[in-house]
């Protein structure tokens, strides 16, 4: 892929004697949605706070477009739009005034740009209402508008779907995918909704107790092996098992009254079908039992420490 947009190099954070983040290194590229996954208290938010400069690094370095967050903060941060935790706004101001407020802090934000982004996040009708009258979902949208105001090349969203209804979640998910694919923005998303991550992200980094357990693409992550778990629904399972065992020279296959389940190489599936059909066995369905992200997550993190 191209040059990494964000580079974390051996980032550590210690508070007192406690190590919150331990030697974190990974890269994030333009055009990808990077999911940051981990149980509560694992250090997701701390890492995000360090990327945006709210917290200082104890060790290591973070660069955004080659600018170090430690020494060239302004150059680094101007590429970034972010929501850290909840999108907290000035409640006694209107949504529009809030956006004006943040727009004034960056050069080149026009009123037209503000109205454009308001339209994009779907707040046009209520933008002149006071924020205290907004629902959580509307605040989330306003937060997104605030983050996208200056057309950043990096978007950092901490729990972006928090408080949204299913329709809103889907909308945000589509929008995030669109930003990454069409505008080449690097998006970092943290979430505890694993199924959500699976649909939204290209790559996922799992963090546990301040350490990076692994970074993998979602596809690899869910199906890391060439072999996959497959279920065959047939009319004569015991006979069918015999045939499959012969075809693939296996010794034992699990089955119940209708379903045979086995681990099988992708290329072997048509082979099995063929032999089953030849033997006159009625084949009703072939289902791949993909491991969900959740299963994998529990496997990797050992299932512990999830609140």
């Amino acid at each position: 892929m191209n040059q990494p947009v964000i580079k974390l190099e051996h980032v550590s954070k210690t508070i007192g004697k406690k190590t919150i983040i331990d030697d974190l290194s990974f890269d994030i590229y333009g055009g990808e949605v990077f999911g940051f996954l981990g149980p509560n208290g694992a250090g997701k938010t701390t890492t995000i706070r360090m990327i945006v400069g709210l917290m200082k690094l104890s060790k290591g370095n973070i660069t955004i477009h080659g600018h170090s967050i430690k020494t060239q903060y302004k150059d680094a941060i101007k590429h970034v739009g972010a929501i850290v935790e909840n999108p907290e706004m000035y409640k006694y101001l209107s949504g529009y005034q809030n956006l004006i407020h943040y727009g004034r802090m960056i050069s080149g934000i026009t009123k037209e740009r503000i109205m454009e982004i308001v339209e994009v996040v779907g707040l046009a009708e209520r933008i002149h209402d006071k924020v205290k009258r907004y629902s959580l979902g509307m605040r989330q949208r306003l937060g997104l508008a605030q983050g996208l105001l200056h057309k950043p090349s990096v978007l950092i969203l901490d729990e972006p779907t928090n408080g949204l209804d299913p329709a809103g979640i889907r909308e945000i998910r589509h929008y995030i995918r669109k930003l990454a694919q069409e505008e080449g923005i690097a998006v970092i998303v943290s979430s505890h909704l694993l199924s959500e991550m699976e649909l939204m992200c290209d790559r996922i980094g799992i963090i546990q107790q301040g350490k990076l357990v692994g970074v993998e693409t979602v596809r690899d992550f869910v199906q890391s092996d060439e072999t996959m778990q497959v279920q065959f629904t047939v009319d004569q399972p015991s006979k069918a098992s015999q045939i499959i065992m012969e075809t693939l020279s296996l010794r034992h296959i699990k089955h119940n009254e209708t379903i045979i389940e086995l681990k099988i190489k992708r290329d072997d599936i048509p082979l099995v079908c063929e032999s089953l059909v030849h033997a006159g066995i009625k084949l009703y369905a072939i289902t791949s039992v993909a491991k969900t992200l959740e299963d994998k997550f529990l496997e990797v993190t050992g299932g512990s420490g999830i609140a």
Binding site: Y73, D75, I106
Partner: peptide, 14 residues
């Protein structure tokens, strides 16, 4: 106290 500081400080302003 409102948490708005998190959005205020992440701008290209010292």
């Amino acid at each position: 106290t409102w948490g708005t500081i998190k959005l205020l400080l992440i701008r290209p302003v010292s």
